[in-house]
Design a protein around this nucleic acid. Sequence first.
DNA 1: GCCGCTCAACTTGGATCCAGAACTGGCGAG
DNA 2: CTCGCCAGTTCTGGATCCAAGTTGAGCGGC
Lengths: 238, 238
Amino acid sequence: MSDGTKADDIALALEEAIVSGEIPPGSTLRQEHLSEQFDVSRTPVREALRRLAALGLVSFEPNRGVRVRMLSRDEIREAFMVRAELESLATEIAALKMTDDDLAELERAERRFSVATQALVEMSHDGRQDLEVARDWLHLNHSFHDVIYRAADVPLIERMAKAARRTFLVKPVWATGADLDELYLKNDRQHRAIRDAIVARSPEGARVLAREHVLSSGRLLEAILDKVSAQLREPAVR
Amino acid sequence: MSDGTKADDIALALEEAIVSGEIPPGSTLRQEHLSEQFDVSRTPVREALRRLAALGLVSFEPNRGVRVRMLSRDEIREAFMVRAELESLATEIAALKMTDDDLAELERAERRFSVATQALVEMSHDGRQDLEVARDWLHLNHSFHDVIYRAADVPLIERMAKAARRTFLVKPVWATGADLDELYLKNDRQHRAIRDAIVARSPEGARVLAREHVLSSGRLLEAILDKVSAQLREPAVR
DNA sequence: GCCGCTCAACTTGGATCCAGAACTGGCGAG
DNA sequence: CTCGCCAGTTCTGGATCCAAGTTGAGCGGC
């Protein structure tokens, strides 16, 4: 166990499991099951669940259990609007504060993301479906923005934006395809544009680009969701 | 006790006590003390505290206790920036969706706030210091914005904006004076301007006005903080 | 056959209990 | 007199225990 209290460790682990989709949305979490899974008593498990509930990841139904929240399309849209506002704000601030070291870091993050995007698109062309590649892509995507947050030094904004980032799930919603490839590539181009605006010390430009970027990511996710739900309807099992 | 679980009730009560300043920032909360105060065991108290920690109102220091968080000037500034972004977004959306009923409600909220502002300024002129009047003013201020949230129907944005709203305290930071009166009156004028923009169905206008309004409220609070800290340390009532 | 009732198994919410970490305050060495 | 060490107290973190609420399967009446 990494740090201090078990409740925190469990909360972190559960958060990861929920966000990654390992625990599917809508499922109910049995306290006893979790307690033996983590090899602790139910007490710290309950505390961890309270924390997740406060973050909005799960919901307590008194005397009936906790359920992993399932977000509606509207809520996902809202989450992206929140992110758009907060990330654009952070980017504007970062553009004013960036040191040369930060810029170098941003450059590296952008390049790694670019490589991941290429890998993703190539995979799509080959018709393969590697979840690990997709996960890497998302992770490096976040890393790019994290560099910006670090440079902006706005812990509260960062905390809230990441809370919004967490509100949607990844693993069950993934797809590739020619139509999506264009959106992935666009995402990459937007990162470069943001980097350029920051390099050019243009806070307003960076802000507008960041805002548009997040909103466009939201549209990408919606496109993925559409595709997935279409696939789910298509093969009429049973 | 209002609803379901005790942990929730306690969390609500504590949240209120902290936000209202009844429990001063920086103080450490003893679990046992709270448990006998609420006449329950420590278990639900701990769960309530976990929730408050997730909301950022208190911080756990492992094996040392929980402390009511004390916000730095920077964090308060950040909270207002977050509010400015989110409230302006909500206001823009609300301006598009407002029904006539909502408008009437907004009108009433505005009028009540106007009356409260008058009362506050008059009180200030008379040299009186009535905490209740100040609290009413703040409450009606929030009510005005709540009407907008309700009309916009954006639960996630509302939740996050209110989280930001909660991050600063009220009771210990209050002051009046000729310099502040002008700011209070400005606040009222801004509400009217926002209402007008909504009535005129101008989402962009409402957005800009709302943003400026929140930022200006932030400057008001900073002015109050300056004034209070200028008045040298006064022993807290208990 | 279908509906409602009852009772048992299961699960949660909360209380109590225990081990270990952190703050005391005294005491001796320098 | 000061500093550091050590035991006693206090408090937290976690485990265990118990009561109350919920679920679901069987059973009898219609």
